[in-house]
Nucleic acid binder design. Structure first.
Length: 481
RNA sequence: GGCCUGUUGGUCAAGCGGUUAAGACGCUGCCCUCUCACGGCAGAAUCGGGAGUUCGAUUCUCCCACGGGUCACCA
């Protein structure tokens, strides 16, 4: 059997990571099994439609590296792939279902429906119109009475609708607990429940992979497949991604969108890798995996039943892992926008900076805080020279800097290596300890207690002229102590 | 409230009747080291509760508690 999965988002805004994960699993499952991954846009709800949301769906998939085999832009023979373009067909299917006894016309108006609430305020349709005579139905339709088409759950037969979910196992819901839901709205449009079943069948979807909010309504959908005489698909329901123990990650928090993470400086492979691990665990111990590895490793057996809390700290770690394996040149390219926004914008060689940053940055937006000090030399705290362990103080630093200045001035290469030679020669004179010398130099040149690299690396970065100028300035300030 | 469903360290999780209850993130300490990182090593920390079944339960059954989902002419 040719496996076909689909991702069927509604164009209602940004791509939430929960949706992305559902999409990812559908993609991985299809690719793992040599199947087809279909993209279908479910835009039957005009009220929730958001301008530009469809473009976001395309761009997200493209950026994420999830390539669909069929979709609105890739006809595979099962189109159209946009639900609103399919709207003409649903009514006929609904009528067919009525003919087969799986649905019926309902003419109840809102006023009557409102009277159906039970003691706890929960209403359930009472099948009032299920028993209408054929003549009644025809005359009401002829007279233009608005109607909907409802699913006909054969509650009178008793029974239970069950199916085997790929992750949750057997799910059973008694007919008596189901309601005759609306399939076709009074405007002739299908509801999600109906369109979904019809579309999945027509598109020959074999495995329906979606969030677990559909877990308990799936038996109802299966009854529709049965009534149509269609084969039921297999289902893989996914646990939720939570913000904390009691709240699921939602769009309301605004920080759970794929785009937001990109802006914060997360790398696409890291985001994909992390969300793949949320709710699924590979059989081995390897956690860092690219798309190809994920595809190879993906297995329903590893999908968990319980919801998982989104842990940004772990995603940061993964992101850092991806950054660490980049070359300075590669890093400089993705980091450029962040360098440009920092105080060092345009003043330093980004590749040089990148050499120091790849092992010290977790996400790209950390860049500014790591490099801004380069431009914040003036007025630094002279107490930075104090260090008990090295018996260091401003006084000793002054001596060291005064003696080092001429030595450094004679170094014309001004590379990390050349300066190492100069400094090592000075160390060998035995007058000061290595730690004291480097501390004096590092602070004297950077004005910072913590730098992303050693003293000579920083000096190389700043350039000879600027470094000498700064050392001189530091000497002046230290003399004033 | 009815129905569906879940519950292993702070977090992600492995486990599938007998284990010293993996691994990862985070955290703490040590080593490396001119600071910061990286890297290496070590450590603390977990089976929601109660009944059963069993020679033996984290694993099986039931009940309870606590979460989550669902109950629209939204998807």
């Amino acid at each position: 059997m040719d496996i076909r999965t689909r991702f069927a988002p509604s164009p209602t805004g940004f791509m939430h990571v929960g949706n992305l994960r559902t999409c990812l699993y559908g993609y991985l499952f299809a690719k793992k099994n040599g199947g087809t991954f279909v993209l279908r846009i479910e835009d039957t709800d005009q009220e929730r439609y958001v301008e530009g949301a469809v473009e976001i769906i395309y761009s997200t998939l493209a950026k994420a590296g999830i390539e669909h085999d069929e979709g609105p832009d890739k006809d595979g023979g099962y189109g159209p792939y946009i639900q609103s373009e399919r709207k003409g067909m649903y009514l006929d299917y609904a009528k067919d279902l009525v003919a087969k006894g799986g649905a019926y016309y309902c003419f109840c108006d809102k006023a009557r429906l409102d009277t159906l609430s039970n003691d706890s305020g929960i209403k359930k349709y009472d099948k009032h119109c299920a028993s209408l005579s054929q003549a009644d139905i025809e005359s009401k339709i002829k007279s233009g009475t608005p109607y909907v088409i409802r699913q006909n759950i054969r509650t009178e037969e008793g029974g239970v609708s069950s199916y085997d979910d790929m992750v949750f196992g057997t799910i059973s819901v008694p007919y008596s607990d189901m309601e005759d839901g609306v399939l076709i709205k009074s405007d002739g449009m299908p509801t999600y429940n109906f369109a979904n079943v019809v579309d999945d069948h027509l598109m020959k979807i074999t495995h329906v992979i979606r969030g677990m909010e559909y877990l308990s309504s799936t038996p109802k959908y299966n009854l529709m497949y049965d009534a149509f005489g269609w084969d039921r698909p297999l289902y893989m329901h996914l646990p939720q991604i939570m913000k904390d123990a009691t709240h699921k990650l939602s769009k309301r928090y605004g920080d759970a969108n794929f785009e937001d993470f990109l802006e914060k400086g997360y790398l696409v492979p890291a985001i994909i890798n992390y969300i793949a691990l949320l709710g699924w665990s590979p059989s081995g111990n390897q956690e860092k995996m690219d798309m190809a590895e994920l595809t190879e490793a993906f297995d329903v057996k590893g999908v968990s039943k319980s919801g998982s809390i989104f842990d940004e700290a772990k995603m940061r770690w993964l992101n850092a892992e991806y950054i660490k394996e980049m070359t300075p040149e590669q890093f400089a390219i993705v980091a450029k926008p962040y360098f440009d926004k920092s105080k060092v914008a345009g003043k330093y060689d980004y590749v040089q900076l990148s050499k120091l940053l790849t092992s010290r940055i977790e996400i790209l937006s950390d860049i500014a805080s790591k490099v801004d000090f380069l431009e914040e030399f003036k007025g630094y705290d002279l107490a930075l020279y104090d260090n008990k362990k090295n018996k260091m103080s401003g006084t000793v630093a002054l001596e060291i800097l005064e003696k080092m200045l001429p030595l450094l001035q004679s170094d014309n290469d001004w590379t990390n290596d050349s300066m190492q030679v100069v400094v090592n020669n000075f160390i060998e004179q035995g007058e000061y300890k290595k730690g004291q010398i480097f501390l004096a130099l590092r602070v004297g040149v950077t004005g910072s207690g913590m730098t992303p690299g050693g003293a000579t690396e920083m000096a190389e970065l700043l350039g000879k002229a600027e470094s000498i100028r700064r050392i001189s300035e530091s000497i002046e300030r230290l003399r004033g102590l």
